[in-house]
Simulated scan of single mutants.
Amino acid sequence: MLDKFLLKKSEPALPDSLLKRLNEARKKPMPNHVAIIMDGNGRWAKQRNLPRVAGHHEGMKTVHKITRFANELGVKALTLYAFSTENWKRPKFEVDFLMKLPGEYLTTYLPELIEKNVKVEMIGDFEALPKHTQQAIENARKATEQNDGLVLNFALNYGSRLELVNVVKHISELAVAQQIAPEDIDEAFVESCLMTGHLPELDLLIRTSGEVRLSNFMLWQLAYAELAFTNVYWPDYNEECLLEAIEDFQLRNRRFGSLG
């Protein structure tokens, strides 16, 4: 049953009504950097009496269509929370399956990513990943390093607290080596030391599945980001869902602490 379910399905064209809304959204301020906590794969599978890994596999297909649509919208960076530092606690079979998905995704869709000028990057503890996962990410990085369109940034084996601890260690090492003085350390300097330091500032965070928490994700980067939560499970999240989040973002008055 699972093998039959995992067969690749053709992707229908977007309806004209959605394309019209897409074009209207592109005329308004677009979030430069969107991050998504992709949640609900397991519950989606459970509703269908399928194993959890079926939900993860379907979620991979959602990654493809959301990446493609974000690129069409003109988003500059899309960070996807694919695997946290805490996810190693899950059953070994599930973890092993999740570690194979980057290779499957990039093998399947890398030619299209190259064609669409998408650049693949990753944040997280790269060295702790299995060798085959590292190889898949590294191959995609090299194959897309000259692209200058949407940055597709996978947060893989990522945890924000660990990131911040590593930033503190790095700054401490620079201070001990007398390469920086205390007065050199400001918000801009700390931000430059983050894994996302070269990316646009995070504008919009989306979390699927009805959970309303941050789960140790981009805590520094989220300081002034707009937040959007939806009850839709990640495998069911589609282009219209993303467009609705973008349209809502465009209606918000972002004051960044000022009066208004």
Rank of each mutant, 00 (worst) to 15 (best):
V176A: 09
N71I: 13
H64T: 10
P51K: 03
D96M: 01
F5G: 09
N231C: 12
H57D: 14
K46E: 15
K142L: 14
M30Y: 06
V95S: 02
A25N: 02
E173T: 07
C241D: 15
W44S: 03
G55E: 12
R21G: 07
S84N: 01
F256E: 05
I137A: 12
R48K: 13
L14M: 09
E58P: 05
R26K: 14
E163T: 03
E115C: 01
N238T: 08
I246F: 04
G40S: 08
G74I: 01
L110F: 03
V34K: 10
K65D: 08
M99Y: 08
R252Y: 03
A143Q: 03
A70K: 04
Q134S: 00
L98S: 10
A228M: 15
V167W: 05
S258P: 02
K76E: 12
H132Y: 11
L162F: 13
N153F: 11
F189A: 06
L2S: 14
I123P: 00
R43Q: 04
L259R: 15
E127A: 09
S17K: 11
P31V: 11
T85F: 07
A128M: 12
I137F: 15
M195V: 14
K100H: 15
A77M: 11
P51R: 00
Q221R: 11
V176F: 10
D39V: 01
A181W: 09
T67Y: 04
E201F: 10
N216Q: 04
T108P: 07
P51E: 03
V53M: 15
S215P: 07
S10T: 12
